[in-house]
Amino acid sequence: MIALFRSEWQHLIRHRRVSLLLPGTVIVVWFVGLLLFQLSGAIGADQTGLTPLFNAQIGHLFATGLCLTLQGWLTVVTPLLAISFFPVFDPSPSLSPAHFLTRLLALWALMVLCIIVTLPFFSILPLFGSMRLAEISWALSVVVTTTWLISTLALAGITLIQQRPAGLFVTYIVILGWFLASFLITKTSTSLTIATIIVAASNPFAALIATLAPAFPPAGPIASDLNTLLQWTHGVVERDVPLYLLYITGSGLAILLFIGIVGFVSRPKPRRWQHFDTWWSVVLVVYLTIAYAMREWWLPVLATTGR
């Protein structure tokens, strides 16, 4: 399996798309950062004397903007990278679960590499005196989770459909539908229910904002922009609800289920019980057991309806 992974990884990093993706990701993040600085500088000229901690407001704007950009950008490009594993026109042959898993791991590793090369931009966030390393780490954790989830979804979709253009199209449709549905349901919800929280938490952008939102400034010129953003991502859910805990927990389960389903469906027929299935079952049970044992970590998010 290690040899298989090396093969898939070598295949991936020799792809021209990847050589464009990495500098492209860095340049996109740099460009957005530049825009944010210009924006905050234009506001800051008038506001520094009025707002006691305007530096921190700029820091929040910068952090939020960078995280959203990085996550949005990687969400868009991940399916494009996922198709690199498949032939252009021919239907892809049946795939063993181990083969699927190694492709997925290679894609995950590439996503992590994409995030690593953008880290210097995040490392200047402490300059503004508004972010703790814990908050930045949680935000990056959500970005990693999202890219892994999208990677799994894209790879699973294309593997199951076995046609590259069709798989890509369906993947984008599913992602778009998922995001739109969660945004619209959250925005239009008027009462705080468990369903509302689950829908909000299923939105990667809401989960990302939730890592930063508790420290959002309540007032000020930048605060109003951030609060508008919160209305779209959180709706009636309060800003200090740690949606990301539920999101990360749920994403882990979703990834496991995707792997299990695709590993079973895409394997050559006749489909029999394999070592992969045993290990997958063990990992699933362990995951569920840990999730249950650590329910104090993510379950209180659902209890916030009682506030």
């Binding site: 520094t48 305007f54 530096n55 921190a56 700029i58 200047i124 005196g129």
Partner: peptide
């Protein structure tokens, strides 16, 4: 009292 906005230009 307000806090001076840090100089970001060098880093950027």
């Amino acid at each position: 009292p307000p806090i001076d906005t840090p100089t970001v230009a060098q880093g950027y």
